[in-house]
Design a protein around this nucleic acid. Structure first.
Lengths: 342, 342
DNA sequence: CAATGTCATGGTAGCGCTACCATCCACCTC
DNA sequence: GAGGTGGATGGTAGCGCTACCATGACATTG
């Protein structure tokens, strides 16, 4: 009789304990838990009773090792505090919360290099799926995604060349629609104010430019940007800069709602009438834009829905039901409000 | 010669491949990677070369199984979109990003039951540490934390009875200081407006009440709360309710900055002078409070720092250097601004 | 100089689970 | 009734790593 090594794990029940108690083989317990349909009703009940009595919970690490597949969704976002990504994350989380998948978080800090590093780290774990923000991966990241051996969903944007699947909308169109709206409302010297200027911001700017050029209103001096991370404070400062540069400014399309809010507050402070003297349009349509005074026109983006849909597509792919159309455009909606109601 | 089973894992190099290439035992490779000090300089170099050449990355699942310890920090927060917790999460993430620890996220949705469920799920994974928001765990959750067999840090609040360690501040004191400030500034009919009313909100309310009672100003009708999740929109509505209930209201202490912003916007809309007719104090001091017009008095809370410190304490405990004082109070700071400058 | 300690290294035996294949037992089919 | 078929169940052999113990070389001690 060999003395069994004292359990490293501190005495939690294992599948063997359950099998012994239920009087079946360990593999049958494993099956009863993962594919109940393949185990007879009687044994299933017996096994369930043993599981309940022992309080057995499968060890996900052992599972992952044996099956070469971890029940983990790797999620890469460029920021944790930007509420846009927080809502995508919430959508992902909510869609996954009644499955046994766990979420492993990666924050790329808007850095391609950091994204590469994280994908490198996520790989050996054999995640069940990867959800990454953006479509501008570096060649190395792209190859890591292609060889990850699991479904990949790029989110926030749509584009012509998905690694695997995509859910998002067109930021170019968003910028264009927002700008066209302001032109339509009678604004002429419409500035673009943007911070961070990540690829999505760049495309919104391109949309702005397209609309301005089409109307014969484009002027490079109307554009005020900075690579500095976006904030309400920065919105105020950039707006001051823009106004100093172009005193005839009569409107601004803001790269996002934080910036728009900064502009709005600065208008209050400087007693600039909104929407009469200056019109303001934001991007994303955060909750508060509707409540602001005056309420702020914005492009409503389907952040939560993007998160949900990305998980739905990944789960379908895991189940072998790859969607017909790998690129899903969820669109956006222009919310016309007081800040552009001249 | 037995045919080796085709690698389940899809041909990634294993520690045995590295060992073979370097001409050493597998265990020495393992040591060179985890405790380099215990392997001679020469072998270390040899092994590193083999690792680089093969592109070897250790399998975290196998590691976790063999060592009965996953390099995972379990993080439980009540909300992903509330920017307060997003910043705590960012602090945790940043402090962990140059270690090999991964983050596994759990969203309790402010539910004790969900917290229990998540702890149950996290347990079998043998996380290296658990960071949980709040100090009001259910008895079941508390026992799960106590028996988790890893360092536990409760964050956001301080209290007398930590499961293991705590980092936070006193919400009671925060509410009290905010209210005392308003009293000092000459406000008398100071309302309390709060949404969600989770335990931390309750304690802020208690602090408000203590201050009001001490000044002989307390009146239950001044309190307007709802269990509904907090938002800027809700701030506006609760403020309208409060004003309808108590037309003589001359100030409000808001449970958080979202609410305060809603109140501010409503004051703009209804042409109520701030700070003259109504004073406003928020809680948390989000970036935008300083930029708002008028700028909004708030209690600055050390969210990011709480995240960082919680990780530092957990890492210290993992390394066997448990901190002298298990409860760390990071305090808060009253930011006096225009919204209460009567 | 034997006894003891220390250090670097390696071999063995799992960690708890599942893939793979074998077995067994109905239940058909001709 | 021989042979085939399919579904339920089990045994064996790992998955890739590390804990534990053993070994051998050398230094240290009295």
């Amino acid at each position: 009789m060999t003395k069994p090594r004292s359990r490293r794990g501190g005495g939690r029940p294992t599948i063997a304990d359950v099998a012994r108690k239920a009087g079946v083989g360990a593999i049958t317990v494993s099956r009863a838990l993962r594919e109940p349909g393949r185990v007879s009703e009687d044994l299933r009940r017996l096994i369930q009773a043993a599981v309940d009595e022992l309080g057995y919970l499968p060890d996900p690490n052992a599972r992952a090792l044996a099956s070469a597949r971890a029940e983990v969704f790797g999620v890469l976002v460029p920021s944790l505090t930007n509420s846009v990504f927080a809502e995508v994350l919430r959508g992902i989380y909510d869609s996954l919360s009644d499955s046994s998948y766990r979420i492993q978080l990666g924050n790329t800090h808007y850095s391609g290099l950091e994204e590469e590093r994280l994908l490198q780290v996520f790989g050996p774990q054999r995640p069940a799926a990867l959800i990454v923000a953006g479509i501008d991966q570096t060649p190395i990241s792209r190859r890591l995604l292609e060889t990850a051996g699991c479904p990949v969903v790029q989110v926030m944007e749509t584009g012509p060349d998905p690694v695997d699947m995509m859910v998002g909308f067109s930021h170019f169109d968003g910028g264009k629609v927002a700008t066209e709206h302001m032109i339509e409302m009678g604004y002429r010297r419409i500035g673009f104010i943007g911070a961070r200027m990540d690829p999505r911001s760049q495309r919104r700017l391109a949309g702005y430019r397209a609309a301005m050029e089409a109307a014969g209103l484009f002027d490079a001096r109307l554009i005020t940007t900075t690579p500095v991370p976006s904030s309400v404070t920065l919105g105020r400062e950039l707006f001051r800069d823009a106004l100093a540069k172009v005193p005839t400014l009569d409107g601004v399309f803001c790269n996002n709602d934080d910036i728009a809010l900064g502009v709005l507050f600065e208008c209050h402070r400087a007693s600039i009438a909104v929407p009469k003297t200056i019109g303001i349009t934001g991007f994303n349509d955060l909750d508060m834009m509707e409540v602001a005074f005056p309420s702020v026109t914005s492009i409503r983006t389907p952040r939560y829905e993007i998160g949900r849909r990305s998980v739905a597509m990944a789960l379908a792919a895991i189940a072998g039901k790859r969607p017909q159309e790998p690129v899903v455009d969820l669109g956006f909606e222009l919310k016309r409000r007081e800040s552009t109601a001249r």
